[in-house]
């Protein structure tokens, strides 16, 4: 597969411990990589700079949604044809990337959304409460966006440049996942769900979304509604 115009966007916040081991397999695949350091207070930035990757650094912490948007804009400015989003905490596996890219490169659609809950998709080591919440979130997002998808809060996604240009993530923190889907729906982007494997480790679970954050997500979405 031709990968010379594929950009992998990786938001990172305090991922110094695992960053190198997450990025190295991707470097071997010859992708262009941009790490967006969201004002980490650990050594994330220094480690990123030692790697053969592009590094953008937020001077203040803005959140994952903002970091994604920064990385996507940077990749587009540097001539990306395809953009893949990838987590820095080791939950994603490199084998997902070619699977996400294939439907885009074949010209079947402009957005590929990873799913843990369909076909051969897997969520290895997922705690039961997280599973339930994700299912409920997916059900809710299906209602709101009208998209018939099985997994709405999966960070494994791929976009053609044309689709990525239309994205404008303004939800800086965690409500960006639903916002992104809304935009896919509003712009009538052709999309497909691709089964991917997400691997939960004790490290990623400790760092990841807490259930208590659900309230914050709802709050951010509510404020967004007010703005409209």
């Amino acid at each position: 597969m031709k990968v010379d115009k594929v950009w992998v966007v990786i938001p990172a916040f305090n991922e110094g411990k695992v960053l190198r081991s997450v990025i190295e397999p991707l470097i071997k695949e010859n992708y262009h990589i941009v790490i967006v350091d969201d004002a980490s207070v650990d050594n994330t930035y220094n480690i990123a700079r030692e790697l053969p990757v592009h590094v953008c650094r937020h001077t203040v912490n803005l959140g994952q949604g903002a970091a994604l948007q920064t990385g996507i804009q940077y990749a587009l400015m540097n001539g990306a044809d395809y953009i893949v989003t990838y987590d820095a905490d080791g939950q994603h596996i490199p084998e997902n990337i070619p699977k996400l890219l294939k439907p885009l490169i074949d010209g079947n659609c402009s957005v590929a959304l990873g799913t843990r809950f369909d076909g051969k998709g897997q969520a290895i080591g997922i705690p039961r409460t997280k599973l339930i919440i994700l299912k409920v979130a997916a059900f809710y997002s299906r209602l709101v966006t009208g998209l018939s998808i099985t997994d709405t809060h999966n960070g494994s996604r791929a976009f053609t440049a044309e689709a990525a240009k239309k994205l404008n993530i303004t939800q800086n923190r965690m409500a960006h996942a639903s916002q992104l889907l809304n935009q896919v729906s509003e712009h009538n982007m052709t999309h497909i769900e691709v089964p991917v494997v997400i691997r939960y480790t004790s490290y990623s679970l400790a760092k990841g979304q807490k259930i208590s954050n659900l309230f914050n997500i709802l709050w951010e979405s509510f404020m967004e509604l007010l703005k409209k």
Partner: peptide, 27 residues
């Protein structure tokens, strides 16, 4: 006040993003 804060946050985001992109370490 809420909507004002939201606007300020958006402006800061634009600013921080702009700085991040122009100061990016290119490889």
């Amino acid at each position: 006040i809420g909507t004002r804060l939201l606007n300020i946050e958006r402006n800061i985001t634009e600013l921080v993003r702009h700085i991040a992109i122009i100061n990016a370490e290119k490889f």
